[in-house]
Amino acid sequence: MLIGEYRHNIDSKGRLIVPAKFRNILGDNLIVTRGLDGCLFGYSLDQWQKIQTKIEELPVNRKDARTFTRFFFSAATDCDFDKQGRINLPDLLINYAGLNKKCVLVGLSDRVEIWSEEKWNSFTEETESKFEDIAEDLLDL
């Protein structure tokens, strides 16, 4: 299970360290694509295949399904870990997520989210005040 929040810098070549705790779970690589809310989603190969199967079941005759599929898959990149535990993100994904230097990698059970530190801080500040209401609406813990 992928959990936790880690802060790392992305360098000028688009290389970003993935925490060792994540790499131990993910294997040799990470499939990264456009995510929601302005971040990137990263999946292990096994999890990616599950997501792919679900998306393939979307009805091709629905415009929203075609649009989502195109946007999601067209940016997907298979990122191998180098000897330092880094992945190399393409400019397309860096620009989409607004990554410039400081990044936050967040483990969310079955995926990794990659955020610019600025967007992540904004998200957490906004969410902090609503967290209890959201939990009350969604969960019965």
Rank of each mutant, 00 (worst) to 15 (best):
S116D: 03
G42Y: 01
N24G: 15
K119R: 15
D78L: 01
S116L: 07
K13E: 14
D110G: 05
L2V: 06
Q52V: 03
K119P: 00
K101L: 10
T69Q: 06
L139D: 10
T77I: 00
I3G: 04
D137K: 15
K63N: 11
K54E: 14
C39V: 14
I10G: 06
I94A: 06
E126W: 04
N95D: 15
A76R: 03
T77F: 00
N95L: 05
A76V: 00
E126L: 11
I17H: 06
L105H: 07
P59G: 07
Q47E: 15
C79E: 03
S122E: 15
R15F: 02
I3Y: 02
D28L: 01
M1S: 13
D11I: 11
T53S: 13
G14I: 07
P90Y: 02
A76D: 04
C39Y: 02
L40D: 07
L139V: 09
N61F: 04
D140A: 13
W115Q: 12
R70C: 04
W115I: 10
E113Y: 09
K50C: 01
L2N: 12
V112W: 05
F81G: 12
F72W: 07
E132W: 01
L30S: 10
S12G: 11
S129G: 13
N29W: 00
E56L: 09
E125G: 10
I51N: 07
D28M: 03
R70G: 06
K21Q: 11
F73V: 03
N88G: 02
A65N: 09
D82S: 12
E126Y: 04
M1R: 07
R23K: 15
I25N: 12
I3Q: 08
D133Q: 11
N24L: 09
G107Y: 03
L16Q: 11
F131Y: 15
D11W: 01
G98Q: 06
V106D: 07
I55D: 02
K119W: 03
C39F: 01
G35M: 08
L92E: 09
L141P: 02
D110A: 08
K101H: 05
W115A: 09
I94Q: 10
L99Q: 05
D28Y: 02
G35A: 12
K50D: 10
V112N: 06
I17D: 02
E57R: 08
S44K: 07
R66P: 02
